[in-house]
């Protein structure tokens, strides 16, 4: 008698009650699916926005002009010093001749530019940085390097990007937080309703001398199963939704200014996260819900 942990019993009871309380289970799964879909959609939106901003970020570079008095050779020798500056990931050298050549090409070889002397241009480096947020600081640091004439950077544009990204991420985080709390609340209430239907059974179990742990386990299993079921359904629905939105966006903008990360590339993140959130909501919800009924 009275074995400590009868997993087989908890599972068969947990599963059994999912089917005997079909409608409530269905409602709980629907709630979990809805919560996950809303949360998932916002997260995917935020991730894609961040990704697109990341693309723009990569094209962002600083032009570091070398002092006129430096020969090409000594200008080239500055590369290690530039790479020493924090936040700098890459420095590409361009001679004044190359710069003139590029300038001409960009303007379509207009005649007026024909006899432009190449010493109008200076040797320069194009420098990439890791963190766009620190662009202003990096610019100042680069200007400190011996031999650097001046540094031109689109600090305002960079700050604009950063602002947009931070606001988007912040809004998404706040929304996800609110949704998480709301969905936990809804699940707790859904399962509370389910436990309410079973308060007689719980009362009988208590009367017979069942321990709280014993009464709780089947509900935990039930919550877990409902949570995971909801996660899986939400995962596939999210996939379909994402593809649908994707095809609409691609049709609507032939230039494809908007790039989307393929869903398949994110599966290894989305699936575990959905399952974890579903399990937490399901189990947390049932624990919250049955707490009250155990006090007899």
């Amino acid at each position: 008698m009275a074995r400590k942990f009868d997993a087989g019993y908890y599972f068969s009871e947990g599963f059994h009650s999912i089917f005997t309380h079909g409608f409530m289970s269905f409602a709980a799964v629907c709630m979990i699916v809805a919560c996950l879909l809303i949360m998932g959609s916002f997260t995917l939106l935020a991730v894609n926005l961040d990704n697109m901003l990341g693309d723009m970020e990569q094209e962002n570079e600083l032009a570091v002009y070398i002092d006129d008095s430096y020969t090409e050779e000594s200008a080239r020798a500055l590369e290690p010093a530039l790479l020493q500056v924090p936040n700098v990931t890459e420095a590409t050298f361009m001679t004044r001749t190359e710069a003139l050549e590029k300038f001409r090409q960009d303007r379509g070889n207009v005649d007026i530019l024909e006899d432009l002397p190449d010493d109008v241009f200076r040797d320069r480096y194009y420098v990439h940085i890791a963190d766009i947020e620190q662009m202003a600081q990096t610019k100042a640091n680069l200007e400190q390097v011996e031999g650097v004439g001046d540094v031109v950077a689109a600090v305002e544009i960079a700050e604009g990007f950063v602002l947009v990204r931070n606001v988007a991420t912040g809004v998404a985080l706040v929304l996800i937080g609110i949704l998480l709390v709301v969905s936990l609340f809804i699940i707790a209430n859904t399962i509370k309703l389910a436990t309410f239907y079973r308060r007689d059974e719980i009362a009988i179990m208590k009367m017979c001398g069942a321990t709280d742990g014993f009464i709780r386990w089947p509900f935990v299993v039930e919550g877990l199963v409902l949570g995971l079921t909801g996660s899986l359904v939400a995962f596939f629905l999210q996939w379909g939704l994402y593809q649908m939105v994707g095809s609409v966006i691609i049709q609507g903008n032939g230039l494809s200014l908007v790039t989307m990360i393929p869903y398949t590339a994110m599966v290894s993140t989305i699936l575990p996260v959905f399952c974890a959130v579903g399990a937490v909501i399901g189990v947390g919800g049932s624990l919250v819900a049955i707490r009250k009924f155990l006090q007899v």
Partner: peptide
């Protein structure tokens, strides 16, 4: 105070299972 959705047998086994009987 019987469980309406359970048979006589199930009502009894429910009570036994509640205290951990095999």
């Amino acid at each position: 105070r019987l469980i309406e959705k359970k048979t006589v047998y199930e009502n009894l086994s429910f009570a036994m299972r509640a205290v951990g009987a095999s």
